[in-house]
Design a protein around this nucleic acid. Structure first.
Lengths: 231, 231
DNA sequence: CGTACACTTATTGTATACAATTAGAATGCA
DNA sequence: TGCATTCTAATTGTATACAATAAGTGTACG
């Protein structure tokens, strides 16, 4: 048995879920996991809502066993929480959690941007830039495209930073901060475009310090807005 | 239900509630989780070893269901990995993983130390210092005490940094770096004492910059040693 | 009325049977 | 022998029954 081939990182799992057409036939627990992920992201399941396992399993067309497996994976990612002998609850990211997560992102993701400077594929970078500019023009603002674009920009340098561990942690952090932003920062989304462009510019110039600064500024900007509008 | 049966029920409820206040009544999956955690830490289960669910379940005296639940928790923490339709495998932290993890720790844990400067309980700090000094004297070097002491020192400022998200990430990172250190850096353990003292000194002086530097130096020192002795 | 207690119901926790899949052995053929 | 193929055994994936627990409801008693 091969020791190097057995790792499946969270980032890779996410990527795999995007291009599902290539994968043969996901098993029941994976289907449930992907479905639940989307239900939470799309707020079909709202924060604070408790989950009755049998009902949800029936809805998704699987039995409780793979459903619970999916819920446990989601718990590991912080999308749901659970107390012993009590139902799973969809995580509600409060301001405190959000700010703490953003402060970690500010440190870590800025470093990732710096590490990635000079290592990102220029074609992918230009594609990302084009999408940001296109998104900026949409009227009304295309929320769904926003998150795809956000993923594209951040994924660009996170996956190019050369540190898989760091990438995995950022994947998890971004998963939870996104929950908060979807629920409470909808007004702020449009403004991210120019901050994203600033990051892309720094990456294209292979300027590690500028990339770090641009990413940190982006994070700080979100922090400031959250404190002002929610706190 | 007759009177004696009612009495017995009451007594059992009372006992249960008493026990709940003492220990949170560990269910089968939690027992399995704790047992496995220790088995991996103590290298009863060695890195790379694949796990046959039924056999291990029998060993632990639980059925496969709670065992799998435990394994999934451990997968979330990075102690085991799994590919679809293949057995769980005890994670083998290779040099690459270790260095990447340590680089993240160097960034994040240094920041945690800085944040904690001036916030740690002085009594706990002195206790930790005493244990470090005591450990340093042990002959032969007490490996078990080493890890308890390591946990005490790092836990001291990680839990005092005021950012629970950051603390959680560091818990997970330290879990995996410890796997590597137990397996491959046994010789290096003794040297951590004086680095730990340096961190404690900075914390006691409430000097954030010194704490950050001391922690980063500690991480870098481990990185250097790993590269030299393993690479 | 209100409170506490027993009782019923709903839900999570666990065991186990079975299905699907994988790995390995045996077999056939060139 | 070497290779591919088919069968067999072992193991993981899923469904489901049942046990333990928590939540809700009604009732007796003060």
């Amino acid at each position: 048995m091969d020791a190097t081939a057995r790792e499946r990182t969270k980032a890779e799992q996410a990527k795999a879920s995007v291009r599902r057409s290539a994968t043969p036939a996901p098993n029941a627990s994976t289907r449930a996991y992907l479905a639940l992920s989307n239900m939470i992201k799309d707020r079909v399941l709202k924060g604070g809502q408790s989950i009755v396992e049998q009902r949800l399993a029936d809805e998704l067309g699987v039995s409780r066993t793979p459903l619970r497996e999916a819920l446990q994976r989601l718990e590991g990612e912080g999308l749901v929480t659970k107390l012993s002998n009590q139902p799973y609850v969809v995580r509600q990211v409060d301001l405190r959690d959000y700010l703490q997560s953003m402060n970690v992102r500010k440190i870590l993701e800025a470093e990732a941007a710096a590490l990635a400077a000079g290592r990102v594929d220029i074609t992918a970078l230009n594609e990302a830039r084009a999408h940001v500019l296109e998104l900026e023009q949409s009227e009304p603002y295309d929320t769904h495209a926003h998150w795809a674009c956000d993923e594209q920009v951040h994924g660009l340098f996170i996956n190019a930073c050369g540190n898989k561990i760091m990438a995995d942690m950022l994947f998890e952090l971004r998963t939870t901060t996104r929950l908060f932003e979807i629920a409470r920062l909808a007004d702020r989304l449009r403004r991210t475009s120019q901050e994203h462009i600033a990051i892309l510019d720094a990456l294209e110039a292979s300027d590690a310090n500028a990339a770090r600064k641009a990413m940190a500024a982006h994070a700080q900007s979100l922090i400031d807005f959250a404190v002002k509008s929610v706190g």
